[in-house]
Design a protein around this nucleic acid. Structure first.
Lengths: 131, 131, 131, 131
DNA sequence: GTGGTCTAGACCACG
DNA sequence: GTGGTCTAGACCACC
């Protein structure tokens, strides 16, 4: 349960945190049935207000990703992995689409955008090839 | 002066409009010295409140992209092109970097991310190659 | 008819120009009966829109400082000198009072304010003494 | 957080409020780290619209005088005191310089200007000596 | 017509 | 409760 949060981003903290959790579930870093850190603990880890984390847990419960049992905490729902994989993939696609669109708007050619994307991949250490 | 605005995005309208103008300047679609549409005109075009556009003009003036002369209009500053090119490029790079990071967080391999990026490029019609 | 104008000041251009004329009349640099430069001429000199100068002439006429004769220009009114002296003195006093008040608000002591005032006088080359 | 506001002045309310805050910080009446009154509270105190105060806070944040934390309030930045002292001093000097220049333009001698300045100091109760 | 400022009041995310 | 953004509409000085 360690993911980066950007308080200055325009995307709401709660959305960022929810995505972080969805991704952790999607990749198996949080297994179905596993217990999440308590609201206060996670809030302190992320330097965020407990209310914000509580809202995230509530939202994810409604989304079917978590099940919260009052008094004993929040747990990854049994069917959550597949659901999160789909959501994560869609979110990545839309982020890439937006980034590419931004490059186009900035007047970059496809080659230039591809070159930048390549650099980003290398920088991330995942070694995709962009020619 | 035609760029898309998404009122439902979490990024503020004023930021979107400012970026649209920066991009237009960066690509030369708005030349140094050229006059921008009036606050009320652009506001009507973008289906936005005049105050929002006014704020954008004011911010871009402080940023050195525009020179605004009350009573006569807002104009692209002489040194704006290079400044905007740098800003635009930086903004594209950071968007791509964030998108790739998101892909990594979602557990995608470099190849998968590259494949998606390729698809986005094709979809955008700029035909960069991502293998 | 040469006085400085600051387009970026919050005080309206027309007020600044009107004051410049009042001061010129008060000091005799514009004598009663003398003809002022034409609206367009003064506007070009001051890098200002003719409408603005026209408004100033109108205002000063209503104030009794000028008399405009359609077709032949604007002239300093006969009783204008004394009137302008009074107005100028009042304006100087209020400017000084405001400046001192600002110094007090900034937490400066009377001695510090006096020292700064002294420096300003010397800088202006009029050699008043501030101890 | 008590300073006078003049709604009839040509200088914008927001500028007046910003200066009031800068002065308070410069004189230590507002210490680094201290929390400012909420936007709505200060607005009510000054008989001004909350948006106006919000604009001031935003501008002062950009200026590095405040650090604003959405949801918890606006705070005096740690390095703000020195910055404000400089800004305040500059503002006082320029006001005095302008007032003296005005006196010179009005045809007053250095002695006359100094006498008026003296009177203003006494009137302000700070007892600087202007001879 | 232009931009600049201000008011009034709404919604949102966050503490 | 906090600040941030947006809408709606007003007045002003200037072109």
């Amino acid at each position: 349960m360690n993911f980066p949060i950007d308080p200055k981003s325009t995307v709401p903290l709660s959305d960022q945190i929810a995505e972080g959790i969805r991704f952790a579930v999607a990749t198996g870093r949080l297994a179905p049935g596993e217990r999440l850190p308590g609201v206060r603990v996670l809030a302190r880890d992320l330097l965020v207000n407990p209310n914000t984390v509580a809202k995230v847990y509530r939202d994810l419960e409604r989304e079917g990703v978590l099940r919260t049992r009052p008094g004993s905490g929040a747990f990854v729902a049994s069917r959550a992995a597949e659901r999160c994989r789909r959501a994560s993939h869609a979110s990545v696609v839309s982020a890439l689409r937006a980034a590419v669109a931004r490059g186009v708007a900035a007047g970059l050619s496809g080659e230039e955008i591809a070159r930048v994307a390549h650099a980003c991949l290398e920088e991330a250490g995942v070694h995709g090839h962009v020619q």
